[in-house]
Computed example of a mutant assay.
Amino acid sequence: MNNSPIVKEYSYENQVQVVDLILQIQQQEYNISITKDDQPDLFTIEEYYQTGNGNFWIALYDKNVVGTISLLDIGNNQVALRKMFVNKEYRGAIYKTARLLLDTAIKWAKERPIKAIFLGTTPQFLAAHRFYEKNGFINIDLNDLPEHFPVLQVDKKFYKYVLE
């Protein structure tokens, strides 16, 4: 039996599950005081993420959304990795959900004229920091971000991935 979730491009039919997954992780798991009203992009995913060199993917397991990842086109052949969330039960070596999502996004980016992927994250996401570093992301300073990178209030740690 294949334990791996299926990664596919986001479609509107998955919106409720996407919002529920992201809010649950942010609010309950990490105690970040952020609401759905603070994230209007979650209600306009097609228009916000799936344009230009951007896209949004979901990981499905038994028709349930268990993970998300997106690339936001920020111009100049650069993208911001956003909304990388994986249900706690689907993290790690058994399901490899995060790896499947990241590999999908990087493969997709390599098929376009994208030169670099940037991301911002919060200090408390320590496992995420290790994951990004293990997968080729380099820690950078806030001042090294592109001009149009959308820095969120919670973002204090930043990474860059250069596409060859």
Results as ranks from 00 to 15, higher is better:
residue 60 L to Y: 10
residue 97 T to G: 12
residue 75 G to W: 09
residue 124 Q to D: 13
residue 109 A to Q: 01
residue 118 F to V: 06
residue 127 A to D: 14
residue 124 Q to G: 00
residue 103 D to W: 01
residue 130 R to W: 06
residue 73 D to S: 07
residue 90 Y to D: 07
residue 57 W to G: 03
residue 80 A to E: 15
residue 114 I to F: 07
residue 122 T to Q: 14
residue 69 I to M: 13
residue 111 E to N: 15
residue 67 G to E: 06
residue 127 A to H: 09
residue 88 K to Y: 06
residue 97 T to N: 12
residue 129 H to R: 12
residue 70 S to D: 08
residue 90 Y to I: 02
residue 95 Y to P: 03
residue 122 T to I: 13
residue 111 E to P: 00
residue 108 W to Q: 09
residue 113 P to W: 02
residue 76 N to L: 10
residue 105 A to G: 04
residue 84 M to W: 11
residue 103 D to N: 15
residue 122 T to G: 06
residue 63 K to C: 04
residue 91 R to T: 00
residue 100 L to M: 14
residue 98 A to E: 14
residue 82 R to F: 02
residue 95 Y to S: 02
residue 90 Y to L: 03
residue 83 K to F: 07
residue 92 G to I: 10
residue 89 E to C: 01
residue 115 K to W: 04
residue 70 S to W: 06
residue 128 A to V: 06
residue 109 A to I: 05
residue 69 I to P: 02
residue 115 K to V: 05
residue 72 L to Y: 15
residue 62 D to M: 10
residue 103 D to T: 08
residue 97 T to S: 13
residue 111 E to A: 14
residue 80 A to F: 05
residue 60 L to K: 09
residue 71 L to C: 14
residue 99 R to S: 15
residue 131 F to N: 13
residue 66 V to N: 13
residue 61 Y to I: 01
residue 78 Q to L: 02
residue 71 L to N: 05
residue 122 T to W: 10
residue 71 L to I: 11
residue 93 A to E: 13
residue 57 W to Q: 03
residue 78 Q to H: 08
residue 70 S to G: 15
residue 118 F to M: 12
residue 86 V to G: 10
residue 75 G to N: 04
residue 75 G to P: 01
residue 130 R to S: 15
residue 111 E to H: 12
residue 81 L to D: 03
residue 95 Y to A: 04
residue 133 E to Q: 15
residue 128 A to K: 04
residue 73 D to F: 05
residue 97 T to C: 10
residue 120 G to Y: 10
residue 107 K to I: 07
residue 89 E to P: 00
residue 115 K to I: 08
residue 125 F to N: 01
residue 65 V to A: 10
residue 96 K to D: 05
residue 122 T to E: 13
residue 89 E to I: 00
residue 119 L to F: 08
residue 84 M to D: 03
residue 109 A to R: 01
residue 123 P to W: 02
residue 134 K to S: 14
residue 60 L to I: 05
residue 114 I to P: 03
residue 116 A to N: 13
residue 70 S to M: 04
residue 113 P to N: 15
residue 122 T to A: 15
residue 78 Q to W: 00
residue 128 A to D: 05
residue 93 A to Q: 11
residue 86 V to L: 07
residue 60 L to F: 11
residue 122 T to M: 09
residue 118 F to Y: 15
residue 113 P to T: 05
residue 102 L to S: 08
residue 56 F to L: 08
residue 66 V to M: 09
residue 93 A to T: 07
residue 89 E to K: 15
residue 56 F to M: 08
residue 135 N to L: 13
residue 116 A to F: 01
residue 133 E to H: 09
residue 130 R to C: 09
